[in-house]
Design a binder for these strands. Sequence first.
DNA 1: AGTTGGATGGTCT
DNA 2: GACCATCCAACTG
Length: 197
Amino acid sequence: MRVGRIVEVEAYGGPQDRASHARAGPTARTSVMFGPPGHAYVYLVYGMHHCLNVVSGPPGAAGAVLVRAAEALEGQAAMVAARDVPAARRGPPARPPRRALIASGPGRLCAAFSIDRTLDRTDLCDPNGPLFLAPAAPDDRPPVVAWGPRIGIGYAGEPWSGLRWRLVDRSSVALSAPVEGDAAEQADETPGPGLGG
DNA sequence: AGTTGGATGGTCT
DNA sequence: GACCATCCAACTG
């Protein structure tokens, strides 16, 4: 069994969020986002990488949380093996990824956990399912939460591209990228659904 | 250490 | 037909 500790996520706000796939309303691909929370929305980006989302909010809200990075806790050998299979691996060698970076990034995370579209729409709250979203262990290291702009959504324009809806555990070495503008300056900022920026 | 460009295919206009 | 919620190798300095 492969187990990871999620250390980086992004929030997507539903149809009004110009960065969300829900912006076009329910389609064959995105209709799961308009359903009940706790289910997986898995899609293919750039023709070769998968991304995992957790549907959130009440049915119809089409909120989602993109899972961007995790620290490997168990089953690391399986993760390394899974990372090594990409159907289209180009170029010559391909060295084994650094352990801390095995699931560091939305595409890497899906590769490490063998998450693809066959898991689209599955119930992530079912402990007997193929993919399970578990609460943190009681003895888990407490996260040091920081927040910054979401990654790769500049096309959405303001205010969406400026919202600090990327949440990370700053103490983790598995982040896909540093938090932009992460500094003492945000000490009195608060994350959340407001359009503050 | 930082930047750049190619791979690759589903989805929506 | 254009556009990606990415990753990595191959550059430059």
